[in-house]
Design a protein around this nucleic acid. Sequence first.
DNA 1: AGGGTCAAAGTGGCCC
DNA 2: GGGCCACTTTGACCCT
Length: 187
Amino acid sequence: MRDLDMNQPASGGEEEEEFPMGSVEEDEEERGAVASGPHRPKKLRLSKEQSRLMEESFRLHHTLTPKQKEALAVKLNLRPRQVEVWFQNRRARTKLKQTELECEYLKRCFGSLTEENRRLQREVEELRAMRVAPPTVITPHTRQPLLASALTMCPRCERITAATGAPALRPAAAANPFHPRRPSAAF
DNA sequence: AGGGTCAAAGTGGCCC
DNA sequence: GGGCCACTTTGACCCT
């Protein structure tokens, strides 16, 4: 039933028939029951073969010249207007699909950017926290945390000492065997 | 039966 | 003025 060719143009050969989708007799019978308006013909459905050929043509070119339109209409036994409408709607469907794809892509972009933004915000928070708490060191003598800013270095022996004068830390450079050693208790 | 979906076709505006 | 596009209407069909 679906593939019945109900798309024959009305007899008479005139391009713009008032009821292009069926004979006048059919319209007389069905008009009142189906159509919303008194002069609205039943809507056609292209056959599978017609749709296939239209698609084939659409793959080759998305728009038709008047000659191509005419030729396709003849080939499919449709009116040129129907071919034109089909191509218009087909272009609209293509565009809609493309827009939907772009929409999905942008949604994914938004998602990953939101995630990266969250990650960077966390990083900023961590860096801020590190700056707020001043760096401290544990002195070997008192075993208490001491502000790093309170440390000074002895210009002579290059030992790091607390501002109080007591030696606090030995820098890595102090491990240098060439660094002058304190006289040992044995000497 | 009726609600949803799809596609054919109508309409009006814009552009060349 | 014809062709195209965006938007809308409407009929056919499908599913529950």
